[in-house]
């Protein structure tokens, strides 16, 4: 019995010290990792809206949505949605950019509200139907979200 207790306590102690070290390392590196991720994301955004400067992207909080991960509003240009959907593989991630001018256009508005974009009107995504359907749904959801919540 004493032996069991000794072994248990020793392993628990080692694990606790390891956990402490990990927490320390994480607290030191997490902000840098987050900053790196943000910089990489801004690079992608700059590809979509090349006219916008680095400070023109503003992240806004997402209200109750499972698939919309992040929203960036680009001053005077449009809105970018970062979507996370489950297709053939877990965690397909893509960006939807909606131009301010296009959203103001009535026909585009109707195409979003009235009917859904069909999978076959899009270029094939990774050559598989299982992945492209959630992507189409994601694009539709981003459009609806923009009309309902942002504009």
């Amino acid at each position: 019995m004493k032996k069991v207790l000794h072994l248990t306590l020793f392993l628990a102690l080692v694990a606790a010290i390891a956990g402490g070290a990990l927490a320390l390392a994480n607290s030191l590196t997490a902000p840098i990792v987050a900053a790196n991720a943000l910089a990489a994301e801004k690079e992608n955004l700059a590809l979509i809206f090349p006219n916008a400067g680095d400070d023109d992207f503003e992240e806004i909080t997402v209200k109750d949505s499972e698939t919309i991960e992040k929203i960036f509003q680009v001053k005077g240009e449009g809105t970018v949605f970062k979507m996370q959907v489950t297709g053939y593989k877990e965690g397909t991630s893509f960006m939807v950019a909606l131009d301010d001018n296009a959203v103001a256009d009535d026909s585009f508005r109707d195409s979003l509200i009235g009917k859904n974009a069909e999978a076959d009107t899009l270029d094939i995504i990774s050559g598989a139907t299982v992945s492209s359907r959630p992507v189409v749904d994601g694009i539709n959801e981003a459009g609806k979200y923009l009309l309902e919540n942002v504009k």
Partner: peptide, 22 residues
Amino acid sequence: VYIVVIATLVKIIQMLIKAYAP
């Protein structure tokens, strides 16, 4: 005990690489 020690070190190195050499 060895596995805990090794795994902790690897995770710390991984965090450092992620932060400084993405």
